[in-house]
């Protein structure tokens, strides 16, 4: 019988960003991933697992995920209660929400996110800081801009819908309507499906071809 390779990952640290949103750092265990991919994880010994985009960078010696505690949610609540030293069961990496290597330094990217949908872009922009990108982050309140200092000031645009003080007051859809997108730009959309659908329609109207649109729906 073959020996079993363990997929248990020890939690190293929890970083609270807002009352409901936090970053879980766990050991890397040598996992190779392509920025933009996600993990499927849950508490060790529990059969309930959920998908979380990898938030950390390729070069980090740990893995991180950015989680929002969902009201009446199960796993996002369980994860909030874990402590350093606890074990998670992690499978992955999975998914194709990644940049093509041949595009990295030849294309312009527009990353459009809502809420924790910024997670894959944190990994992508941190892993490939030289790429030509603009990152739109749609949230309701100022404190949800999470770790915005990790992105170059001139590339990160917060679109805050419920209060003033962000880079743009309004939704990401309003921003895109006011700042039409060049059709050669590769657009990556991540987060809530309503945002993705609305942005998709606007981008199509602006002439961005389907092949330049990529999306990852969280819920």
């Amino acid at each position: 019988m073959e020996t079993i390779t363990h997929n248990k990952y020890t939690v190293k640290k929890i970083r609270e960003l807002t009352k409901s949103t936090y970053v879980v750092r766990m050991e890397r265990n040598g996992m190779a991933f392509i920025p933009g991919q996600n993990l499927n994880l849950g508490l060790a010994g529990d059969t309930e697992k959920r998908d979380y985009s990898i938030y950390s960078r390729k070069k980090d010696d740990y893995l991180e995920i950015l989680v929002k505690e969902v009201e009446d949610g199960l796993v996002s609540k369980q994860l909030k209660r874990i402590n350093p030293g606890d074990a998670l069961e992690v499978d992955g990496p999975f998914g194709f929400f990644t940049l093509k290597e041949e595009h990295l330094y030849s294309k312009k990217f527009l990353f459009i996110s809502s809420g924790t949908g910024i997670a894959p872009f944190h990994s992508i922009t941190g892993s490939f800081p030289e790429i030509d990108f603009t990152l739109l982050h749609g949230v309701r309140y100022l404190d949800e801009t999470y770790e915005k200092h990790d992105y170059p000031d001139d590339r990160y645009i917060s679109c805050i819908s419920q209060e003033a003080g962000g880079d743009f007051h309004g939704r990401v859809t309003d921003y895109i309507k006011q700042h039409p997108v060049d059709k050669d730009t590769l657009c990556y959309l991540c987060g809530n499906v309503n945002m993705i659908y609305d942005v998709f329609d606007i981008l199509k109207e602006q002439g961005v071809p389907s092949e330049n649109l990529h999306a990852e729906v969280y819920f």
């Binding site: 499906v193 993705i196 659908y197 998709f200 389907s210 092949e211 999306a215 990852e216 729906v217």
Partner: peptide
């Protein structure tokens, strides 16, 4: 429909 395909996470679109 491309949007349904996105929600289904099919990773193909009608053009392809």
């Amino acid at each position: 429909d491309d949007k349904v395909l996105i929600r289904m996470n099919r990773k193909h679109n009608m053009e392809k």
